[in-house]
Design a protein around this nucleic acid. Structure first.
Lengths: 123, 123
DNA sequence: ATTTTATATCGTCTCATGGCGATATGTATA
DNA sequence: TATACATATCGCCATGAGACGATATAAAAT
């Protein structure tokens, strides 16, 4: 039953093109809580019981975010007894986030420059 | 009027944290059409009148996608006469997409492997 | 000055997503 | 076996995003 479900869903996923996978990964990353979960994990493996209290959200909410990251192949899930542990699957992800950061910082500094020019005009 | 509007909106944007900028950039990228627009542009500068017919969507739809990419700081807009030209602002973006690709390809090959194992079991 | 062309914006519809409490599932403990 | 614990899933609501036709704006051509 479980295996069947997984098999069907993975076959379904196979049918998606590489572009759709890219979208899936990027969509999984485009949420503030999910980005913070990734930062919270860093290189460590942590159980849900550690992650949930670190964010002021319902357990079901965090669980769903973790599932989204897991299904996008960003996190890896490991079950140990009654606990579930997550970790960032591929450290390349941090390279990706660093590039995003550099783009974001550039954008912010550009806006700051524009703002100060406008401020001078107003004076 | 226009400058005022832009000023207010940029101040508003300034208030967003770096994390929100990251989310904005990633959200702008997490759409198949927008990714294809970026690929279509490549390193070139193209006008909307070239982009619209390349996708089977309404002009208003493409225009909105271009605005989203522009507001996220991914594309740059230049007006020339009655035409509007767009280009990818920062070539680093392509580095980012290449990293996403490598993550996606890894995921796909992992699924293919799992699929073939399951197929063998079924035989 | 009117019309045509190029693009952005608006209003509306529908569908997807995030949030939460409640419930299900599965493991450990008493 | 009953109970507590850890986590995932379900059902619902509210909000947001994408699609599109219609309209607005603004430059170019007539």
């Amino acid at each position: 039953m479980y295996i069947y479900k997984w098999f069907v869903s993975s076959l379904d996923t196979m049918r998606r093109s590489a572009t759709n996978w890219r979208v899936k990964i990027l969509a999984a990353l485009s949420d503030p809580i999910r980005l913070e979960i990734i930062e919270f994990l860093g290189g460590e493996e942590r159980c849900v019981c550690e992650i949930v209290p670190a964010f002021g959200r319902a357990q079901s909410t965090i669980s769903k975010h973790l599932s989204i990251l897991n299904e996008a192949g960003i996190l890896e899930r490991r079950i140990d007894g009654k606990r579930t542990l997550y970790r960032v699957k591929n450290p390349r992800l941090f390279d990706l986030l660093r590039v995003v950061d550099s783009l974001a910082l550039e954008e912010i500094s550009e806006l700051k420059k524009a703002e100060s020019i406008l401020m001078d005009c107003v004076k």
